[in-house]
Design a protein around this nucleic acid. Structure first.
Length: 705
RNA sequence: GGUGAUGUAGCUCAGACGGUUAGAGCGGUGGAUUCAUAACCCACAGGUCGGCGGUUCGAUUCCGCCCAUCACCA
């Protein structure tokens, strides 16, 4: 019985390049879709670029083009990257489409009729020069807590404090540099706090088919905490869809981006004569799955089902949530060269290597996966070239040279293990469960069985002896049937390689529904051509070097204000979807990890009053995990400072030694008392903290300048 | 600070509804082999399953606390 399945991946934002983090999701989804198609199911894979919003509008303006021109250019870049990685969408569309607008309007209208849309007045910062309301990320100013300058509107990179943009001291617009004014405006809200939504969602997430158990835990937490209403509108100027009954108001991301799933599918239906409603009506028999990253779980598993359910559409059959990508164990980093774009990867390496490696790491859970570049090369070289491809390579020559390219009989004893695996269906089940790692472990076990068979039979010895032609023929033919099986299993992961194998073996495209049969005796195959080369680690190095971006500041650009659009473009989110705040945090975390601060004037430096101090006393702080309480002697005056150095220093070893403190840091009230300054210490991922020490001769109280 | 997840051989990861000697691949060492773009085959060495307690006849597997890492929330 063939299933009807609609599958989506999160929509990439049309404001940046596809990178290796995005590809985890697209490759994961593509493998699943290809598997379903090989099983004979009707499976349609839809996606689109997410094209609306202030960042797109401002970026286009900065480049001197229209938003439409910008998103068209980015669409082609994204499409090229996806094609390059064999991500085979049935439809890759755009949210800036009449279909998406139609469903945005439909959903909005129905939610409004259901009494789930509410209008509220919101006071926000407004740029009087640019004549626009400013999203949090476009407002900068002084942190209200630690008084660091040039901080974003929602939290401080220097001290980590979270606050509202309206708390900033001396705020300025990152777009124009102007002083923003507070201005109120009506915003439209989706009333997710309505009991109807909570009741529905409690039931919805209780079904284990809908979300993974880890996700259900997380969602339960959020539900318990109480759902809040979601702001779904923005004021002009804005690049997006105007709300029909509210001139000057536009749908914000939540009411247009994901509706792109529907828009893209409608577009597909129109082109292919399918009935949209058959898939989206409330009692649809078709299955609907969304592959997403864990950052947008809240949206896809709470907001989205509630929105669909109350707008008269079906809800997802399942939301499949994956973790983030780390490279060599840490967050992707531009300075380390591990923030690798799809384009850059394709310039150096084979896309199927990455597909294989990701597949080997994916297990259907929400855990992060790590791309360890050394392991990547070792794993791919060993599994794919050493084991799998090698089977064909070591047998094909005999068939073509000794038997005119025609296969002989297949030995059924030798294939027993493979036949058993085929009927057991464990590999198929693993693919269905998105536990690709498990599938590949089983496939590689079978590859080992095949290689063991060849080693045991020693066809090369048969080739040298008279009268063993039939045996030789059988061993090589049998091995090639085993190779055919392995190719079938690997095809969702390695579609291009599988095509080459199909051509080599001269067989029709492999599908899963076939009952197991050996390649028939007498079947003619083609000349073997090398199927896959090994990864040269040097190429990986070259790629990483190419992606290392200098984060040294330019002494010329980057002054206060005026660089807002550039800031907005620096969206280094480690995941595939636009989703406001979270993504901003990612971008900022990356910025914070950069080694160099912008240049400052000497005056800025002299504002910092650094002094030599003697540690007069040091003691543990009851209840503090990381802090030591230090009493510092400045040569007459003493200060109390709480320092986060407990892990590195025992208090008794500190007493009496000299070090350096910031003497004019504003006192900060901490849980354990008032901290009147800070001591200086060095640290990074290699270790620390390491306290500073002056050369001998320095005396407490001396100024450092 | 709160919540969640993770912590198993040098590396990347499986696994155990609690039970004889804890697994795989890679890497290492030794051997075998030469068909295969040195690939493959056999063998060996490597782990106090993060730490401390508890439940139990028995825990790495369950529970509690702690430590570390990561993420989310505030």
């Amino acid at each position: 019985m063939s299933r009807k399945i609609l599958v989506t991946s999160a929509l990439p934002y049309a404001n940046g390049s596809i990178h290796l983090g995005h590809l985890v999701e697209y490759i994961q989804t593509d493998i699943w879709v290809r598997f379903q198609k090989m099983r004979g199911n009707q499976c349609i894979y839809c996606c689109a670029d997410d094209t609306h919003g202030t960042p797109i509008m401002l970026r286009a303006e900065k480049e001197g083009i229209t938003p439409e021109q910008l998103i068209d250019r980015v669409w082609h870049e994204h499409k090229r990257d996806f094609d390059g990685f064999h991500v085979d969408f049935d439809n890759f569309y755009s949210t800036n489409s009449k279909e998406t607008q139609h469903y945005s309007d439909t959903i909005y209208t129905r939610l409004k009729e259901a009494g789930l849309i509410e209008i509220r007045s919101i006071e926000q910062y407004y740029d009087p020069v640019k004549e626009m309301f400013l999203p949090d990320r476009f407002i900068k100013g002084e942190c209200p807590k630690c008084h660091a300058k040039d901080q974003y509107g929602d939290n401080c990179e220097a001290c980590g404090a979270a606050y509202q943009p309206t708390d900033l001291i001396e705020p300025y617009s990152a777009v124009s540099g102007a002083k923003p004014v507070r201005k109120s405006s009506d915003h439209h809200f989706f009333r997710l706090s309505d009991p109807r939504c909570a009741d529905f969602l409690k039931q919805w997430i209780a079904d284990p088919a809908h979300v993974q158990s880890e996700a259900a835990n997380k969602l339960g937490e959020w539900l318990q905490a109480g759902l809040s209403d979601w702001d779904i509108s923005r004021d002009a100027p804005y690049f997006g869809f105007e709300i029909p009954d509210a001139p000057g108001k536009y749908y914000y991301v939540w009411l247009d981006a994901p509706i792109g799933y529907m828009g893209s599918f409608q577009n597909y239906c129109d082109k292919n004569g399918l009935d949209f409603d058959e898939y989206w009506k409330p009692d649809s028999e078709a299955e609907l799955y969304h592959f997403i990253g864990k950052d947008i779980l809240y949206f896809h598993a709470l907001f989205w089902p509630a929105e669909l359910a109350h707008a008269g559409f079906r809800t997802p059959t399942g939301v499949f949530c994956h973790g983030f990508l780390t490279v060599n164990g840490t967050k992707m980093s531009k300075s380390r060269g591990t923030f690798i774009t799809a384009e850059s990867y394709l310039n150096h390496l084979n896309p199927e290597w990455l597909r294989y490696y990701y597949a080997a790491k994916l297990n259907g859970s929400m855990e992060d996966i790590d791309l360890n570049l050394e392991d990547f090369a070792a794993r791919v070289n060993s599994d794919l070239v050493g084991k799998y491809v090698n089977i064909a390579s070591r047998c094909a020559g005999f068939i073509s040279k000794r038997f005119g390219g025609k296969l002989g009989a297949c030995n059924t004893t030798a294939t027993a293990e493979f036949v058993a695996a085929f009927s057991k269906g464990e590999i198929a089940q693993s693919y269905e469960d998105r536990d690709y790692g498990r599938a590949l472990r089983e496939i590689m076990r079978l590859a080992d069985v095949a290689n063991q068979y060849i080693a045991e039979k020693q066809p090369w010895a048969m080739a040298k002896q008279e009268g063993r032609e039939a045996e030789l023929h059988e061993v090589c033919s049998t091995a090639l049937t085993l190779f055919r099986d392995l190719t079938l299993y690997l095809k969702p992961v390695l579609p291009k390689l599988a095509e080459h194998v199909e051509a080599f073996l001269n067989i029709p495209p492999l599908t899963w529904t076939d009952a197991w049969t050996p390649l028939p005796a007498g079947h003619a195959i083609n000349e073997y051509q090398h199927l896959m080369t090994r990864i040269d680690p040097k190429k990986i190095e070259t790629m990483v070097e190419e992606n290392k971006q200098s984060l040294l500041p330019s002494p010329l650009g980057g002054g206060a204000g005026g660089e807002g659009a550039t800031v907005a473009q620096g969206t280094n989110a480690n995941h595939p979807a636009r989703h406001a705040e979270h993504q901003q945090n990612e971008a900022k975390a990356e910025a914070a990890a950069s080694p160099w601060e912008p240049f400052i004037a000497i005056d800025d430096f002299t504002k910092v009053d650094l002094r030599i101090v003697r540690i007069a006393n040091a003691e543990h702080v009851v209840g503090a995990d990381k802090l030591l309480k230090l009493t510092l002697d400045l040569g007459g005056e003493t200060r109390t400072v709480f320092a986060g150095i407990k892990a590195a220093y025992a208090p008794e070893t500190l007493i009496g030694r000299l070090t350096v403190m910031v003497a004019n840091l504003a006192p900060r009230k901490m849980k354990f008392g008032l901290s009147e300054g800070m001591v200086l210490a060095a640290s990074d991922e290699r270790g620390g903290p390491f306290l500073l020490s002056p050369d001998s001769g320095a005396q407490p109280g001396m100024r450092i300048k």
